[in-house]
Design a binder for these strands. Structure first.
Length: 269
DNA sequence: CTGGGTAAC
DNA sequence: GTTACCCAG
């Protein structure tokens, strides 16, 4: 047997060994988490609501939000994007309305007019296009934040489309979105709506035995960089916002998933 | 898809 | 306030 042949065979065995060991580790983690007892899946529309730092959580029929009166916008908007929600139906955009469910008074859309900023949806209209009611419900001023147009139609739009891609690929994801309402911020309009300097999104895919998370923190400016450059750990976002995103998860699982800034398991193709 | 604006009724 | 049309990233 030639020397080259021996090396080739050896290399193949080493490769198989490495792959086998990785597979073993994945199975071990899966078994570990299963043995911890994952809570039975219930209606995720309420199951995965984050905590509120403002004490004003509002439930609409197709999404929920926590309103921050100081900044006249939501600190988070949360909803489940099921695969069955994905739709290309095109409804005419209605006018934005003041969300009457906000006890402290939500911002008026006029505060955005001629501000130079978009009325940027937090729960995108494109994620609620499965019915006229759900679509129109996203046009509440409690569901928008001032966004630069280049940002909104640029990298932010890219992320929203990627999430629709994932919702289709992974049979639905749960989404939490908001601006970082911290530090020095410009304000616009009579309502003094704060203009966040960063926006975030947190996703959880709970459709498999082992849930997976991914979080993004993106500066409020357009970028041509790949989306995975903006991945952060959920822990980072929680430290930044004071929000506990997945308090319902078993602590062991929560701690393990939220500490990770890996985007393993999320396809960026 | 993400949004903007203006004119006329 | 609402509807129609035109615009850009």
């Amino acid at each position: 047997m030639s020397r080259e042949k021996v090396f080739s065979i050896l290399a193949i065995f080493i490769l198989l060994g490495v792959l086998g060991y990785e597979y073993f580790l994945e199975e071990k983690e899966r078994a570990d988490i299963q043995s911890l007892g994952v809570k039975p899946k219930v209606d995720t529309n309420t199951y995965f609501l984050p905590t509120s730092t403002t004490g004003q959580i509002i439930h609409h029929s197709s999404y929920s939000l926590s309103y921050d009166e100081d900044h006249e916008q939501a600190e988070w908007v949360a909803y489940e994007l099921k695969k069955s929600h994905l739709s290309t139906r095109k409804f005419k955009r209605p006018y934005f309305e003041i969300d009457k469910a906000v006890k402290t008074g939500a911002a008026h859309w006029r505060s955005y007019k001629n501000s130079g900023y978009d009325r940027g949806h937090l729960c995108p209209a494109g994620d609620r296009s499965y019915s006229r009611e759900a679509h129109d419900e996203t046009f509440l001023t409690s569901n928008i934040s001032p966004q630069k147009h280049d940002f909104n139609s640029g990298i932010w739009n890219r992320l929203e489309q990627k999430i629709r891609y994932w919702a289709n690929k992974y049979e639905g994801v749960f989404v939490v979105t908001g601006g970082i309402l911290n530090g020095e911020m410009e304000t616009i309009g009579q309502d003094a709506v704060s203009v966040p300097n960063q926006f975030y999104k947190v996703l959880i895919d709970n459709n498999k035995v082992l849930p997976k998370m991914i979080a993004f923190l993106i500066p409020h400016e357009d970028s041509d960089k790949p989306l995975y450059d903006f991945v952060v750990s959920v822990d980072d976002l929680e430290n930044l916002t004071g929000i506990d995103f997945f308090p319902q998860l078993d602590d062991t699982i929560e701690n393990r998933l939220e500490a990770s800034s890996s985007y393993k398991g999320w396809s960026f193709n």
